Amino acid sequence: MTSAVRVAVLSLLWGSTFLWIELALDAFTPVQVTMVRCALGAALLLALCRAKGLRLPRERAVWGRLLVAAFFCNALPFVLFGIGQQTIDSGAAGVLNATTPLWSLLLGVVLGGERPLHAVRVVGLLAGFAGTALIFAPWERSALLGWGALAIVGAAASYAVAFVHMGRHLVGRGIPTLSLAASQLIAATALTALALPFGGLTPVRPEPRALVAVVVLGLFATGLTFYLTYRIIADEGATNAATVGYLLPVVSVVLGAVVLGEDVGPRVAVGMAVVLVGVAMTRHRARPRREQASTRGAAGGGPAGILAAGARAAGPYRSEG
């Protein structure tokens, strides 16, 4: 699966998350939704690991890092999203969740270890957020001033911390990304189980629509989503993985127009165009000056020089299974 296809699939799956959460909350508490979605996602990825003959990591240090990732990428933000969406709608949640790439950019600059930040990427990040804001028009939503909004912002920042941690301490260390994703959701299930006494023991109301929603949320919008997230972090870095969040409102608007026949006004259409341009800019790779100089030199040095320059350019990049 190419990087572009992974981003597209991840956007479709992740873009439906807020809808499934909203439906699941008709029968479950936020803690229960988090517990069930983590458990179902872990079960799916464990089955895929077994089918591929992959084993989970055994090192204690790796599991310690996975617990940190599970807390910031699953247990904490999932509960915060559930809490936040009790008082604000999914559209407001979407625009607040779009702060994740900006948090990731800030952490990447402070902590280092991210791909080099050049002007095109920075402008793309800012344009993506501006386009998202244009789609949702947060200035028209008074609910963005309440505790629910703060919970969603906290979840977005938590995602950014997790992505940077995963990129620095988990990917690229010889462990298959599928095994990492399965292990992280196992750890998240265990962490969430500890929170059951604080809101998870409420009786579940047997709502068929909510039950279907939580199953889809767990298997597809959690299990497959976090496997694809790991792959993108491994291949392109934490900030690029976070920029997928900018595509979520585009997915939401397109699905609403195609499936529900909702109108798309000029403001929303312009916002979608800005988002797409911004995401394209964040995926632009500027060549280092030394590489540019060597390539220019190779252009006058014959076929051997050109091949050598190409090998140097491709050298640092590898695909992880």
Score class of each variant (00 low, 15 high):
residue 321 G to P: 07
residue 118 H to P: 09
residue 199 G to S: 08
residue 187 A to N: 05
residue 57 P to H: 04
residue 189 T to N: 04
residue 124 G to T: 08
residue 249 P to S: 03
residue 69 A to Y: 01
residue 4 A to L: 14
residue 258 V to W: 11
residue 116 P to Y: 04
residue 161 V to Y: 02
residue 310 G to C: 12
residue 54 L to Q: 05
residue 103 W to I: 04
residue 274 V to R: 13
residue 90 S to E: 02
residue 88 I to E: 02
residue 88 I to Y: 05
residue 32 Q to R: 06
residue 265 G to I: 06
residue 204 V to C: 15
residue 79 V to S: 13
residue 185 L to N: 00
residue 47 A to P: 10
residue 181 A to T: 01
residue 3 S to K: 09
residue 230 Y to K: 00
residue 224 L to H: 03
residue 298 A to G: 06
residue 132 T to P: 12
residue 317 Y to R: 12
residue 248 L to R: 08
residue 258 V to K: 10
residue 125 L to W: 10
residue 295 T to Y: 11
residue 141 R to H: 04
residue 61 A to K: 06
residue 111 L to G: 07
residue 184 Q to E: 06
residue 107 L to D: 12
residue 54 L to E: 07
residue 166 M to A: 10
residue 85 Q to M: 13
residue 31 V to T: 14
residue 122 V to C: 02
residue 247 L to G: 09
residue 276 L to V: 11
residue 208 P to Q: 13
residue 122 V to L: 15
residue 294 S to P: 04
residue 76 L to P: 02
residue 265 G to D: 13
residue 163 F to H: 15
residue 232 I to W: 02
residue 224 L to M: 10
residue 164 V to W: 06
residue 247 L to F: 09
residue 75 A to R: 08
residue 241 A to F: 00
residue 105 L to H: 08
residue 191 L to G: 01
residue 55 R to N: 10
residue 290 R to M: 03
residue 228 L to V: 11
residue 38 C to Y: 07
residue 240 N to P: 04
residue 218 G to Q: 07
residue 25 L to F: 07
residue 213 A to Q: 14
residue 88 I to S: 03
residue 283 R to P: 13
residue 205 R to H: 11
residue 263 D to P: 01
residue 292 Q to F: 13
residue 72 F to L: 08
residue 47 A to N: 05
residue 51 A to D: 14
residue 107 L to P: 13
residue 252 S to Y: 02
residue 237 G to N: 01
residue 186 I to D: 01
residue 224 L to C: 13
residue 226 F to D: 00
residue 169 H to Q: 12
residue 131 G to R: 01
residue 278 G to L: 06
residue 28 F to K: 08
residue 287 R to Y: 15
residue 122 V to H: 01
residue 132 T to E: 13
residue 180 L to C: 04
residue 77 P to C: 04
residue 31 V to H: 05
residue 205 R to D: 02
residue 301 G to T: 05
residue 111 L to S: 12
residue 89 D to T: 12
residue 225 T to N: 04
residue 228 L to Y: 10
residue 61 A to F: 05
residue 173 R to V: 00
residue 303 P to A: 15
residue 164 V to R: 03
residue 270 V to F: 13
residue 101 P to A: 03
residue 218 G to M: 02
residue 196 L to C: 15
residue 88 I to W: 09
residue 299 A to C: 14
residue 141 R to C: 01
residue 7 V to M: 10
residue 95 V to H: 12
residue 154 G to S: 12
residue 83 I to W: 03
